[in-house]
Design a protein around this nucleic acid. Structure first.
Lengths: 115, 115
DNA sequence: ATCATATATGAGCAACTGTTCATATGTTAC
DNA sequence: GTAACATATGAACAGTTGCTCATATATGAT
């Protein structure tokens, strides 16, 4: 990496913040969670699921998107344990995985609604 | 859009969730906030700024990244009003924009640390 | 004025992402 | 068994993103 800064301006701050840096896997995991919530389609899916457990077919109807597109996104969210699936015959019901996720999502929603 | 679902399985649920759908700009805004927090570099930047106001040069030192890369990301975050800038001479100091953002970020961090 | 430093930014490019399309898998009804 | 339905998934393709590199702008020191 090139030398871009000839002297660190605030040695004490840099040292202190360096010490408390997050572990690589923490950074990866938190970024993955936020990234998953950072897409309009997935926001709409999560907002729907906060209100009610829903099957793929119903979600596609609400979002007015293809079953395939919705299913792909549900897989993304499920892989990250943001939502969970319950199967009943041929119907798959999706739910927010836990209360923490619900809280996190609603905190973000609350933020944009109040500014 | 093709017909993928021959009968909506749960009319009542679909109708109820449809009614409470988010407005398009709410969806866009909340997705943008989460998306901005959904990148490892920006997570590290935010985690640093939660601890202390920092200048670009110091952030680059902590992250061990080029000044240019950091500056580009700071612009992204500032455009979304996630961080704010304070100028003092030729030095630009960055800060988390408000307490809501700090809370949102820490809620996400807390989530991945406790599972 | 010139030089050094701090930050900002446009272009370019490789990597990633979200949708579509086609198709596969699995379940229910007959 | 076959047909209808619900969901899942791989490939492909366009659009987006994050970094690098080069360069621009702006301030402070001399």
């Amino acid at each position: 990496m090139e030398r871009v800064c000839y002297n660190v301006n605030h040695h004490e701050t840099v040292a202190r913040v360096r010490e408390k840096q997050l572990a690589e896997d923490q950074v990866r995991d938190v970024a993955a969670i936020f990234q998953a919530m950072g897409d309009p389609t997935r926001v709409r899916i999560l907002h729907a699921l906060v209100q009610s457990e829903m099957c793929v077919c119903d979600l596609a109807a609400v979002l007015e998107m293809t079953q395939s597109a919705v299913s792909h996104q549900l897989r993304n969210l499920r892989n990250l344990r943001i939502i969970k699936r319950r199967k009943e015959g041929r119907v798959a019901y999706y739910n927010i995985d836990d209360e923490h996720i619900k809280t996190l999502f609603e905190t973000g929603l609350h933020h944009v609604s109040h500014r």
